[in-house]
Design a protein around this nucleic acid. Structure first.
Length: 759
RNA sequence: GGCCGCUUAGCUCAGUUGGUAGAGCGUCCGGUUUACAUCCGGCAGGUCAGGGGUCCGAGUCCCUUAGCGGCCACCA
């Protein structure tokens, strides 16, 4: 044996050894209850980061249960990562001077597919480097046929059950990404913007978004506000930038009399709050901003209004038309100033602006037809399940957050206007829905937009439209057929795809081949779901809802939410701070074992997981300590010591063996309670202090070598078993040395029996 | 604005039925020619954020103040 444990020489060989003996696959013949975990799927084209290394928690549980003799499986997979991947691909296109608009839907999808395939596979190798005992024979990709087919079935069931509806609804639309986002996917940025006080007939109204003024549907004041009491219900004439407009004053409790002047303009098409007001008072929804974030005045330019409008105002409309929101705001503020319509401007107004968390672009609240899922009926059983303790949250405090969110859940917009994803399996008859808007590339590769009726009249045939189809927008009341394939010759497909979380929310079902497979029957519900707390709502809550909806059973019995891996000071790792630690580099330098236990030991589940080279180095030393104890035992054997159970134990021997008993019990208890740090620290302390520094040093002078040898061998092999889930490589490496020396019977530590604690 | 955490040795943090303050790293002193210098022995270092309360007894339970962090909702 070498003087030190040289991890580089063992890790890959040992992983191959485990693999060769199929130890990662469950032993279905075991009679104990099955134990299963699903790996939260990393992006298919991602590379491993410190967060992924936290999956070590899952490997610890898996290795532990496997040694205990449960049929155990840990299933890996990768996610297509919806717009994340499309975003990366579009950047790649941009480098070639192209954009997504140069391709039809199908071509773009296939190109992204190849792109993702090219960049995938890396993460699998990296997960292996860390020693994760995943069953690769069961790996799943989010766009595998059987996954897509389950997602289709679920959608069809939801449609049948009345849980899916289409509606015009105000959604977060990112003009840069070209898609809708759920509320969870946007963030808020504090910003200082001018607050304009605009004259509105007899009133003054405060707003940061004067450009939406063109489509105001009403004015609103608080019913208790004396200043405006007499005006409620009255219609007034207002001088605007484009001439006179009529406006009715409504009253609503939600208007804050303290803000601005206490009276607000209502623009249902471009503000979530105003949209709600509009619904309550039946106000018309009249958009003026399009999906590119540009001001669209076609409603004006194509109407009779142009005839009765003063030339000055008409010029303004032409000036504003098709310009960006920001530009128009500046232009119209100038015009309003010229007309004397601005009373004052508060330049120091700070407020929160909604921005896209992917691109950082300002979110435009737009009213668009979208697919929604009714969440209340799904949330109810999901709340019940946790209340009845069918699912346990660790740490417990997340339960509160869960209830809080689930009890106030809003309907979920599931449609995304991107190509890279699972297409919503819906088809529209063009005969029944001539008003469907389509954009497609014709056979000459020219981009054509219009209603189906219009383009058919222009001489295009349906086949050409479908072949070059980029996007389709059906009116909310369009008739549709749910089907994965075209139900007939005159149908066009929906082009929206599902929100990523719609498919990943069904991960426990799809990975286990719900509903008929042996795996599903054996391993559902899974034992525990471990992930970082930041996707509790995105993912965990959705899996619970889908699981209960489809199977009436929870998808997992426990949720373990680990923290974020940070640098040694508890600072979030980021490229700009330059404090990013690449786990693969660390594993390379100090060994995967050292990294693994360093991520677990000394970390409370509530706190950030501080990782530093120094800490990893400390645990590398621990691995080496184990190695040298093993080496010491082998040397004793070479010097003639013999192992036999027939020994007269001294007090030291007995106390060591009692210590191992206690340690076994303690480790068992800690693992049962998800207290990984306590388990790891307890093992570390026992081996280093009790076994090595105390027992081993005391016995060096003893004459009864056989007794020492036997005791030490028994105690140490038990410790190796207990430590194996945390540090699989060094423990297995030592075990293999022991196998060579015929000191142990089990050929592999990974499948050796877990020590029994006597009671 | 609503909710949830955190504040313990120089640094990073444990401390889960309330019972004499702990670990790792670092500092300093000393040691070791065969298990390991990726080692061993030892010293120093904390009024457990501030204040109040319950209790025979509080780092631990309750109230409160301050600082830091997180989640949710975001009113023009």
């Amino acid at each position: 044996m070498d003087k030190a444990f040289l991890h580089q020489e063992y890790e890959q060989k040992l992983y191959a050894l485990w693999d060769k003996h199929h130890t990662f696959q469950p032993n279905m013949k075991n009679k104990k209850p099955p134990f299963s975990i699903l790996l939260p799927p990393p992006n298919a084209n991602a590379s491993l980061h410190a967060g992924h290394a936290m999956f070590v928690i899952e490997d610890i549980l898996i290795r532990w249960k496997r040694m205990q003799g449960h049929p155990t499986v840990w299933i890996p997979g990768t996610d297509h990562a919806g717009y994340e991947s499309q975003y990366v691909y579009e950047k790649h296109l941009a480098k070639q001077g192209k954009s997504r608009f140069d391709f039809d839907r199908e071509t773009l999808y296939n190109d992204i597919y190849s792109f993702v395939q090219q960049n995938s596979g890396l993460i699998e190798e990296q997960l292996k480097l860390l020693g994760f005992s995943l069953d690769w024979s069961r790996k799943t990709f989010m766009l595998d046929d059987h996954v897509v087919s389950t997602v289709y079935d679920t959608f069809a069931k939801m449609v049948k059950d009345g849980l899916v509806y289409r509606d015009h609804y105000i959604v977060n639309f990112c003009p840069k990404c070209g898609t809708t986002f759920a509320d969870l996917e946007v963030k808020h940025e504090e910003r200082k913007d001018p607050l304009y006080y605009i004259k509105y007939g007899p009133f003054v109204v405060a707003t940061v978004r004067p450009e939406t003024k063109f489509r105001d549907a009403a004015l609103a004041a608080n019913p208790k506000d004396k200043r405006y009491k007499d005006w409620i219900g009255k219609t007034i004439e207002v001088q605007g930038v484009l001439g006179m407009v009529k406006m009715t004053v409504i009253a609503d409790e939600e208007v804050d009399p303290e803000f601005g002047t206490g009276i607000m303009k209502v623009t249902p098409a471009h503000d979530a709050h105003d949209f709600a007001l509009g619904r309550r008072y039946n106000l018309p929804v009249t958009p003026i901003i399009d999906t590119h974030g540009k001001m669209d005045f076609s409603w004006f330019l194509q109407s009779e209004k142009t005839k009765s409008t003063e030339p000055k105002h008409l010029e303004r409309v032409q000036k504003y038309h098709n310009k960006s929101v920001r530009d128009v705001r500046a232009l119209m503020v100038e015009d309003m100033k010229a007309d004397g319509l601005i009373e004052k401007v508060d330049e120091n107004y700070t407020h929160n602006v909604t921005v896209c968390y992917k691109s950082g672009h300002d979110i435009e609240p737009l009213v668009l037809p979208n697919w929604f899922v009714r969440m209340k009926p799904l949330a109810k059983p999901a709340i019940e399940a946790v209340k009845k303790k069918r699912i346990q949250f660790v740490p417990k405090r997340f339960e509160k957050q869960y209830y809080q969110w689930m009890e106030h859940i809003l309907d979920w917009p599931i449609s995304r206007q991107i190509v890279w994803g699972i297409r919503i399996p819906v088809w529209y008859s063009v005969q029944e829905n001539p008003n469907i808007q389509v954009t497609f590339l014709d056979s000459e590769h020219i981009r054509v937009t219009g209603t189906v009726q219009e383009v058919l009249n222009q001489g295009y045939v349906l086949e050409e439209i479908q072949k070059g189809l980029q996007s389709l927008r059906a009116p909310v009341d369009a008739t549709y057929v749910v089907s994965d394939k075209a139900p007939g010759p005159d149908y066009l497909p929906e082009t929206d795809t599902f929100d990523t979380w719609f498919s990943s929310g069904q991960w426990p079902l799809t990975t286990l081949h719900y509903p008929e497979s042996k795996d599903f029957k054996m391993f559902y519900p899974t034992a525990v779901l471990d992930t970082m707390w930041d996707i509790l709502f995105f993912w965990v809550a959705r899996m619970i809802m889908f699981g209960l909806y489809l199977t009436k059973d929870v998808p997992f019995k426990a949720v373990y939410l680990h923290s974020m891996v940070t640098d040694e000071k508890g600072q979030k790792m980021s490229k700009s701070k330059g404090n990013v630690i690449n786990p693969i580099d660390i594993a390379h330098e100090f060994g995967a074992d050292a990294l693994r236990i360093a991520l677990v030991a000394g970390c409370a589940p509530e706190n950030p997981i501080a990782l530093s080279k120094e800490k990893v180095k400390g645990y590398r030393n621990f691995g080496n300590k184990l190695w040298n104890i093993g080496r010491f035992i082998v040397m004793m054997k070479e010097q003639g010591a013999e192992n036999s159970t027939d020994q007269v134990l001294t007090k030291d021997d007995q106390s060591l063996l009692t210590g191992v008993q206690l340690l076994t019990k303690q480790t068992q208890k800690y693992l049962d309670e998800y207290r990984f740090s306590d388990a790891a620290l307890g093992l570390y302390d026992f081996v280093w202090n009790t076994l090595a520094n105390t027992y081993l040093e005391h016995t060096k002078s003893r004459e009864d070598k056989d007794c020492v040898f036997s005791t030490l061998l028994l105690a140490f092999t038990s410790c190796l078993k207990l430590i194996h889930p945390f540090m699989p490589f060094v423990t297995e490496a030592i075990w293999q040395e022991f196998v060579k020396e015929k000191l142990v019977d089990d050929p592999l530590l990974i499948t050796a029996a877990w020590p029994r604690a006597e009671h």
